[in-house]
Structures are given as C-alpha cells and as structure tokens.
Design a protein around this nucleic acid. Structure first.
Length: 886
RNA sequence: GGGCGUAUAGCUCAGUUGGCUAGAGCACUUCCUUGACAUGGAAGGGGUCACAGGUUCAAGUCCUGUUACGCCCA
C-alpha cells in the first residue's frame, strides 16, 4: 500500500497506466489463448476524422463492454481500425493541393494517390491516438485500415465472386450525382434536407393551335431543356383532349408529345408533368414505358452542356435564373410559388445532388437481403433497443440495388478489365497485361473505384484476413456486440449482415446496440459550423478521461439521444474525487498489525448490523451492475455504482465506522477496516470498465494488486453467496429503517433550528424488542450522527412534557428541548395523522373491494394488508404522541 | 405523404412484465470549513406524470384520439 497524495492528478495516472497496459500487452489476445471468445469490431473512424463527442460515447461504450467481458474471463478482443473514407479523404487532399494551385488532374492519378498516401501516413492515425486518450483498450496489434493489403484482397475477392455470380452488373440508370465531388453516390449518400424552394409554372405552346398552351409545374426549370414529353393522368378529364398532341418546347423549339401515364398525380401542380428521362428517376421510368428519348443536358461539374442550346456553358443555378427570366419575358411563365420540399445533398460536401442518367456499377441486393431479413426476424441478430428491428426490416424488404462505382481516385479500383482489341470484359484478381481472349496487350482497367462502404461491409471478417482461413477468423468470428449510431444502420450494419451471410455463411454479430446522438443543450447536433461542439479532449484535459466516460454513460439512457454541456461532466469528476478521498480515509487508519489487504479474512459471526448491511449492498450492486451491462443499460450501471459508493458506502458505512476507527478496540478496528477493504476492492472492480484509470491507480494504491498485476484481469465480482445474503436480509431491513430514523431526528434539529454544534438529548422508544436490541447496540453511533448529548433507548418512555418527536416503523424519536413550540408540534403531528388517516381510508376501501381481493395477485393483497396494519399502528402512536403534548 | 421516437420537479432525465407515499443529478433555500472529501456534509422547498377519452380491482405505465417537438424514409 502506497500513500495516496492529497489530490488526484488525472493526467499523470492516465499516461502512466495507458503506457503500462501497452507495455504489458494487456489488450492483446489470441485464439491460442483459448477460452470463450468475445469480439467487438470497432466502427472504423474515417482517417480524416478527429475525435468528437459521438466517437467518445461510441468508444466509451465499447471499451466498457470489452473491459467487463475481459474481467469475466472471456478471451475478449476489440479490433480497431480506420476507414479510407474515399470521397472525404480525396476532398481533403484536393483542398491541400489547391493551395499549391493544383488540381488532381494536373498531378495525374498516380502522383495524386502518392499524395493521398503521404497524407494518410502523416495524419491518418490522429483519431487512433485520440482513442488512446479515452482509455480505449483496443488490441492495437490488430489495427487495420480498409485499404491495407489484406482488406484490399478481401474487397477484390468479394467483387469477383459477386460478379461471377451475376450479382454485380454495369448499367445506365438515374443515379445521384454530386457535381462538386464529380462522382456518383449511392441512394444512402444523398441526404434529403427540407429546403424552401420554388414551384415554377411554365407554359408550353401546343403545336398548330395558336394561343393554346399546356402549363407544367417544376422545381427544376433548367431541366426543361431535356424534356422529351409532357404527361397527364389518363383519368384526368381536364386534359384528355391533349393526349397525343404535340407541344413545342420553348427556346429549343423541339417537338414533344403529350402522353398519358398513371404515375402522374392529378392533384400536384397543374396535373401536367414535364418528363425529363435523363434527369429524374420517375421520368426515367416513364420514358422507358413510352420509349422516349433521353437527353442529358448537364456536364459532370454541374454546367449546361451542348444539348442546352443557348444555355450551354452556364452553371446550373445561374441557368435556372436565366431561364426563368427568359420565359417570363416570353410570356411563358405563369407563376412562381413558394414550395417546401426535400432535396438531396451530398453527404460529404453538401452540394445539391443532381439526379442524372449515368453508366455505373451496381450490386443486385434482393438475393443478398433474404438471409439478413430472416436472421433478424428469427431473432438470431437482435437490435437494442428493439425498435430498430423494424427500421432495419423496412429497409431490407424494400432494398434497391446499390450503386458502387465512384468517379474518384482514392479507393479500391474496380477489378474489371477491358480489351480494346476484341472488346472482351472480365474480372481479374491480378494486373493482367494481355487479354485472355485475344492476347492483345491493349488492356485497360476500369477507371472507377468502389464505394467506401464496399470495403467496410466486410469488416467483421476482413479484419481477420479473410479470405485466408486462419485460427483467428475461426475463433473470433462471428463477433458479439456491434455498437454504433442509428445513422449508419443502412450504410453499414445492414450491409455487414448481408456480407456475413453471403461470404462467411454466418451472421457477423449477435447484438447491435444502437446508441443515441450526442447533442448540445438545445438539442442541436454538434457540428463545427454551428460552433456548438464540445471537444472530448478538452473535457479530458479539464476533468479527466474517467470523468468524461462516466458522465457520458450516466447520461445515456438506452438508445436515447444524449444532451451534453460542459457542466454535465462535473458529475464524473466529483465522483472520482469522492472515491479518491474515501480511499485516503481508509489509508489514514493504521492498525498495530498491518492488514494484509490481499488476504482479507472476514468474521461474520462478530458483525454488526451495519457490517451485514454494507456487505449485502455490495453484493446487490454486483448483481445489478452485471444485469445492467448484460442489457446494455449503461446509465443504470453507472447509477448503481454511484449510489453504492457515494451513498451507501461513504455517507453511511464510513460514518458509522468513524467511532470505531478513531477508538481503541483493536479487534473491531481490524474487522471494520477489513470489511471496508473487502467492499472497496469489489466496488473498484465493478467500476473499472467505466473508470479504468482511477480504479487501476487505486487498486494498486490500496495494495489490492501486486506490481505486475492489473485490475483489468482481476475477476469480475459475482453475487453468488445466497446463504450469506439471506442471513443479511433482517439486518438490511433494520439498517434501512435506522437511516430513516436518523434522518427524522436530524429533521427535528433543523425544524427547531438547533445550531449544528449544540448537543441535545434524545430518547428513542423502540417499536418492539428486536428493534430495542438493535438500537441499543447502535446507540453510540446513532448519538454521534444526530449529535445527541445523551441518547437513551427506552421502550417504556412516556414524554413527561411536550417534546418534538418523529416516528417510523423502528420506533419514535423524541428530542429534549427547553422551549417547545407546542402548537407547531401539534400541527405537525396532526398533519401526519391526517395523511395516515387518508391513506388508511383508501387502503380500507381497496381491501373492502371483493374484486380486488379476488383478482389482484396474492402478493399485492398481502402487501396491502401489511401496510394497513402498519398504518393502524402508526395512527395509534401518533395519537398517543399528540396526547402527550398535553 | 409514410414510419419511428419523445412529452414526468426550474433544467437534463430514470421509472422493466400495470401494484406501497412517482425517483436521481443539476439548479434553488437554510445551516455547517469537527480530523477523507467545500469537486464536501446536513436539512428543505418544488410534480394534476402534455391534453381528452377508454380498458382494468388498480394506469406515469396498456389502448384510441388530439397537440407540440425531434428523427428516419420517400
């Protein structure tokens, strides 16, 4: 046992223990170590990422789980890694070279990729190092990157397998195009945001019918240049006569037909819809049904192309404005209305996404989804909280094909090769230099790269080097808990489930814990642009990593969003300080024969009620903590330990112990200190997953661990001694009542404004012989806690004069005071008597009700009867006390 | 437009399969620097459980509807 300094130095202990854990390889496990596996794979943060509160919450939860399972004796591995984040990372590096006046095209693919790799080497581990500050006990020997060699092999293998199976195809469809990033996006990567837009009503002249027009409504007037029809609903009487007629597209003077199609909603706008097959998914479908031409009017970077006639070269929104002006000038603009609607935005750069016809690679998802749907329906994979099951199933059952090609350079290049000689196209694991069909050397690889999520969906097995079959893969897969946020259920969770079944033939994980979003005090998402983010590293600096973790998890009700502000982290800091100080208190008390804290022997036959009580309560805490963790109830878990350590242990047990510890009965001192160490040791272990640094420091500081040991592998306390717990129960009940009675006595003092320094005499009239025996044994300690001059326990006490008093099931307490405000005392007692009478009345009514006696559970009826008897007793006593006032 | 979530103390939230007097932390009021801790201790005030119906012996909890806010999908 080493002397603890007066104040904690969180920075010092965080650095010391993290380095120690690394040095002693505490986070690493291997299949060869045997035992029961418990695996978590980290949601790989982007290499461009810096730690924010969302990461802090996500990783605190994972670390809590993995540390707990490790203590339970599992072969527990938490596999870390980072994601190459194709578009995001490319954007970062493009911005960087822009400062040198360069575009990626100026460097060329190869040179540009060198720059990205260099950037990754320099900055890519930032977030990994930040995770270490949090205390994350990842198995760093297993650190992976989605573009390292092994994972790239997995990606290639998967692509080729799906391609050969016919599940990957190339096709020209409407996709989400980001004109800023100049790449296709998947449906999930286009974020819908509500925007205040306009609905433009424009007129198209009817051919050969001067003065006759058709009015269409659109939110994107610039796409009219690509219109190849106008559609109405076939049942719409208003327009039936127009179907089959020809319209003249303004400006371009192109002739387009009026068609009838069920898809058109009669109520929307004018009921006439312009049809632009190359720029809208619904129009595209309509175009197919009616064999309409598809005219793309835009370039990759969001400007109008040669099909836009006089508008060619204009930026799309500038073009919109000009077209509106021109149509207005030509008398073809009927009106412009305000219109709220959802518009897709690029999830990486927030540019407005342009739906657009484009040749891309897709994965056919329906067949992959089937096993994933069954797995959740049959409960093999469970979401926590379970409401996410439904969200997941909804999406999976309506799944659409996945656009996986991206027109960027940073990522896994698509392993498809083309022969320019004979036109052969094939998938290849290597880098072929000649065409396998005609032998020509005019071979080139597809330019596109794969969606970033095409590598992360393999994460649970690619981190173990799949497709290589090895012991780790066999041992650690399937993994156990997946901890993530709801935002990526579709992006990632659902796809991992599909990949797991498709390539491993088994589920990737058993439980998916979905935690909430971290928000600021006003409920807004934390973001850089709002300037409302709280940097977890600032919190670690100011409070401590333990405080950050504890506070975050204490605030995390299952799956609910977490609202944080700086002050909220004080809970964790204060709790840490409290624990530190009680540890110092224990150290303060030396014994003649020093205590061997590693080999505590307890003597229950000589225990007081308080001893039984605290030992029972730590047992209960162990049980509760374990249950909370099993059910992902992190706030309850934090609360259990807070309540136990602060209130049960510090507020009561330590206070009861003081007279003994400052006294001279060496045997009692020894027993009390032994119990304290026994209890505190267990509490530290229960708290370790949540506050790893502080608990490790104290575990050593108190001498519970040898120099080469760590609390990380100390056994997780179990509540298994039922016999002892059963024996403790009567003491637990007594002590809980004693706490209450002490509170009531203190209340008497406060009511009569007795200065805290003054001693007053008290009498307790016990409710029965058992209570009397207990109270007599505890009289000295109670006297101290209520600052009594003299305290007598007198079963026959009858107040000789008016005395302030209070009552509970254990007995009545009387305070001896010179001047008593008899009237105030009468009012107080009368108030209590009224409350008792009222409750009794309600209870009697309930017990008189036949239906209640018959239908309610036996326990509930018995409880009601017991309560009634208790209240009757209480009523009598209160009446007597009232009479005693004279 | 469809789906989901939330509504409990001034604030942030717990409250499990319906069942004792609805809890915690923060904030607030009063008092206390006695020997672990003022990042502390003691005591206290504060709630028609959003609203309206219903089911039940019994509803904060279950059902229906209304309102408000938030999220996801289209």
């Amino acid at each position: 046992m080493s002397e603890l300094p007066k104040h904690i130095d969180p920075k010092a202990i965080e650095e010391k223990w993290y380095a120690w854990w690394l040095q002693h390889n505490c986070f690493h496990r291997e299949a060869a170590d045997g035992g029961e596996p418990y695996t978590i794979v980290i949601p790989p943060p982007n290499v461009t990422g810096i730690l924010h509160m969302g990461h802090a919450l996500n990783n605190s939860i994972q670390d809590t789980l993995i540390r707990w399972r490790r203590m339970q004796g599992y072969n527990a591995v938490w596999v870390p890694g980072t994601d190459h984040a194709g578009i995001a990372t490319q954007n970062v590096v493009e911005r960087e070279i822009k400062k040198e006046g360069l575009r990626r095209q100026d460097l060329g693919r190869e040179k540009f990729l060198e720059r990205v790799w260099a950037w990754k080497e320099q900055y890519g581990n930032t977030i990994v190092n930040q995770l270490k500050k949090l205390g994350a006990s990842c198995d760093w020997d297993r650190l992976r990157f989605t573009m390292d060699e092994g994972l790239s092999n997995a990606v290639k293998e998967v692509f080729i397998r799906l391609y050969d199976k016919g599940l990957i195809y190339r096709g020209t469809y409407i996709i989400n195009w980001c004109p800023r990033c100049q790449t296709a996006l998947s449906d999930e990567e286009s974020e819908h945001r509500d925007v205040k837009g306009k609905l433009y009503h424009m007129r198209y002249p009817v051919k050969d019918a001067p003065g006759e027009f058709v009015t269409v409504a659109t939110t994107r007037p610039e796409t009219f240049l690509g219109d190849t029809a106008v559609a109405v609903n076939p049942t719409d009487e208003r327009y039936r006569h127009l179907v089959g007629k020809t319209l003249i597209l303004p400006v371009l003077h192109r002739e387009i037909p009026v068609i009838a199609d069920d898809f058109v909603a009669k109520e929307f706008g004018t009921g006439c819809v312009k049809v632009t097959p190359a720029h809208d998914p619904n129009d595209y479908q309509m175009g197919l049904r009616h064999s309409l031409p598809q005219i793309n009017v835009m370039t990759d970077d969001g400007h109008m192309n040669e099909n836009a006639g006089p508008y060619a070269g204009l930026e799309r929104f500038a073009c919109r404005k000009k077209i509106v002006d021109d149509l207005e000038a030509a008398g073809l603009l009927v009106k412009v209305e305000d219109h709220h609607h959802a518009v897709g935005h690029c999830y990486r750069c927030s540019a407005v996404v342009e739906p657009r016809l484009s040749p891309q690679w897709f994965v056919k998802m329906k067949p992959l989804a089937e096993p994933g749907i069954r797995a959740v329906k049959e409960g093999r994979i469970a979401f926590v909280p379970e409401r996410w099951n439904k969200v997941y199933l909804e999406w999976m059952e309506n799944i659409r094909d996945w656009c996986i090609s991206r027109q960027i350079w940073w990522g896994h290049q698509i392993p498809i090769f083309y022969c320019d000689e004979c036109g052969h196209q094939w998938a290849d694991r290597g880098k072929p230099s000649v065409c396998p069909k005609c032998g020509s050397a005019r071979v080139r690889q597809d330019e596109d790269v794969l969606d970033t999520w095409f590598s992360s969906w393999l994460w649970p097995f690619s981190v173990f080097n799949w497709p290589e079959q090895n012991e780790d893969l066999k041992f650690y897969y399937p993994t156990h808990a997946l901890v993530t946020a709801s935002e990526i259920i579709f992006f990632w969770v659902a796809r991992m489930i599909m990949a797991g079944y498709e390539f491993m033939g088994d589920l990737p994980f058993r439980e998916v814990y979905i935690h909430g979003t971290v928000r600021d005090n006003q409920g807004r998402k934390m973001s850089k642009s709002l300037g409302n983010s709280i940097d977890p590293l600032d919190i670690i600096n100011e409070f401590s990593a333990d405080a950050l973790r504890f506070s975050l998890l204490m605030l995390t009700a299952t799956g609910q969003d977490v609202y944080v502000s700086k002050e909220k982290f004080e809970v964790g800091r204060n709790f840490g300080t409290k624990i530190w100080n009680v540890a110092r208190f224990m150290q303060l008390h030396k014994l003649e024969q020093p205590l061997e804290v590693r080999a505590i022997s307890l003597n229950p036959d000589r225990w007081t009620a308080d001893d039984w009580h605290i030992v029972a309560k730590i047992d209960d805490a162990a049980k509760a903590a374990t249950e909370c963790l099993e059910r992902y109830r992190f706030n309850d878990y934090a609360h259990v330990l807070y309540e136990f350590l602060w209130h049960e242990f510090c507020d009561w047990y330590v206070e009861y112990a003081k007279p003994t510890l400052y006294g001279t009965d060496e045997a009692r001192r020894r027993e009390v200190l032994s119990i304290m160490h026994y209890v505190f040791n267990r509490a530290l272990r229960l708290l370790h997953p949540l506050m790893p640094f502080l608990t490790e420091e104290l575990w050593h500081g108190m001498g519970y661990g040898l120099e080469d040991e760590t609390i990380m592998t100390a056994p997780w306390p179990k509540a298994d001694n039922l016999t002892l717990r059963g024996m403790a129960q009567p003491y637990v009940e007594y002590v809980d009542l004693k706490h209450d009675l002490i509170r009531r006595a203190r209340q008497l003092r406060a009511d009569y404004e007795v200065p805290p320094g003054d001693k007053v005499d008290f009498v307790i009239k016990p409710a029965g012989p058992d209570a009397a025996a207990h109270l007599r044994a505890d009289a000295d300690a109670i006297a101290l806690l209520i600052k009594a001059g003299a305290l007598s326990i007198d079963p026959d006490f009858a107040p000789p004069r008016a005395m302030p008093s209070a009552l509970n099931a254990l007995g009545a307490v009387y305070m001896s005071l010179g001047g008593v405000d008899v009237e105030a005392e009468r009012i107080k007692l009368q108030g209590q008597l009224d409350a008792v009478a009222q409750e009794l009345e309600r209870l009697e009514a309930r017990l008189a009700n036949e239906a209640f006696i018959q239908k309610a559970k036996v326990d509930v009826v018995n409880q009601a009867r017991a309560r009634r008897d208790e209240l009757i007793g209480k009523r009598e006593k209160l009446a007597a006390m009232l009479a005693g006032l004279g």
